[in-house]
Computed example of a mutant assay.
Amino acid sequence: MRAFGWVLVVGIGAAFFATLAPGVLGLSMADGVAQLIAVRPWAAAACLIAALLLTLLAGLVRLLSDGRAPRLVTLALIAAVVAAGHLGVVLVRGTSDTQPPLAETAQPGDVTVVAVNMLGGSGDTARVVDVIAGAGADVVMVPEAGDTDEMVRALAVAGLTFTVFDGTGVPLSADPRGTALLVRDTLGEYVPAAASTPGSVHVVPADGTGPTLIAVHPIAPPVFPGATERMRWWRAEVADAAGLCPQIPGAIVAGDFNATLDHGPMRDLGTCIDAATKAGVGGVGTWPASLPRLLGTPIDHVLADGAAFSVVRAAVVDITGTDHRAVVARLRPVG
């Protein structure tokens, strides 16, 4: 019986440790695991609570039976270690409360990117315009854009001229869930390219000089396990979106990926880098915005080819009216 008890401890302990890096075991995209690994702060809290409960239970056993309850103590220690591991990942990716880069600090060749999910156009346009103008953004990736006309007009008043691209052929005013990509005239003329992934917008410089720009928005996974078809769909779209940056030299790919850096395709980005993580804000949650910044899930990203760009600064910015925070990143050409 004692041997069986220790076997059970080993099994439960292994399950605890597996939550730290399910991608190593090829489980990060599995139904149930994918939802769990997306919320590391909550996983850390759950493990910490488990450690406390197991410690209390061990103390109760010792009090009532004069035993030492070594199995419970071992599990409590394992849960505490795993809680620290989850928290450590968040801290390593960065939780700084930095401000966005300022327009006046940009150097020639810099590319400043804003990625913001506008929740079907419900986001505060005036606030977004302030963020774009304040950072001197050159590119704005807008999943669930809604009608971008008001935004473009307000930006023009602020002295910023943008061209709007969408990948559906359907007016954004008629498709509020569609994705828009705004390119400032300072980057030169851009033209549409064929989008290779659903929900994405792909543009290239007309003269071949400048970065390829892609806005993405894979479907969201189901909140709870069991929706097999939607999980299959999500896996395919996340893999397609995450694969774009490594495939295209000099690319900048940004938007609402509906995935964190723990999900399989986001773990292997080749030469590409996640701007928020490089700048020390990759652990800040971008969704849902209703939760505190350190309890949300970082699913909005700005990815760039690390062989072509370095990250000067990045910030996660609150936007009223939408359930996402925006990511603002300034990229500088390497060399």
Rank of each mutant, 00 (worst) to 15 (best):
M1R: 08
A3K: 00
W6V: 01
V7T: 02
L8E: 00
L8K: 00
V10E: 00
A15F: 03
F16R: 02
L20M: 04
G23Y: 11
G23C: 11
L25H: 11
M29V: 13
A30I: 02
D31G: 02
G32V: 00
V33D: 02
Q35S: 02
Q35Y: 08
Q35F: 09
A38K: 03
L48A: 11
I49R: 01
A51E: 04
L53Q: 00
L53Y: 01
R62V: 06
A69N: 05
A69K: 02
L75S: 11
I78C: 08
I78F: 11
A79W: 05
A79R: 05
A79I: 08
A79T: 08
V81N: 00
V81H: 01
G85Y: 11
G85D: 00
P101G: 10
A103T: 06
Q107G: 13
V113Y: 08
V113N: 04
A115H: 05
V116D: 08
D124F: 11
D124K: 10
A126Y: 11
V129L: 07
D130Q: 14
V139I: 12
V142R: 06
G146M: 00
G146I: 04
D149L: 06
D149R: 08
D149H: 05
A154E: 14
L155W: 02
V157W: 09
G159H: 08
G159D: 08
L160P: 00
T161K: 07
V164G: 03
V164S: 10
D166F: 08
R177K: 13
A180G: 07
L182H: 07
A194T: 15
V201E: 09
H202C: 00
A206E: 12
T212W: 12
V216D: 07
A220D: 13
P221S: 02
P221A: 10
V223F: 09
P225L: 01
W233Q: 15
A236M: 10
D240K: 05
A241T: 03
P246E: 05
P249A: 12
G250W: 10
A251P: 11
D256V: 09
A259R: 07
A259W: 02
A259P: 06
L269G: 08
C272R: 07
T277H: 03
K278I: 08
A279F: 09
A279L: 09
T286N: 03
A289S: 14
G296P: 06
T297M: 14
P298H: 07
P298T: 05
P298N: 01
H301K: 13
L303F: 09
A304R: 12
G306I: 04
A308H: 12
F309V: 05
V311F: 13
V317I: 15
D318E: 14
D318P: 06
I319D: 06
H324Y: 02
A329W: 07
R330H: 06
R332T: 15
V334T: 14
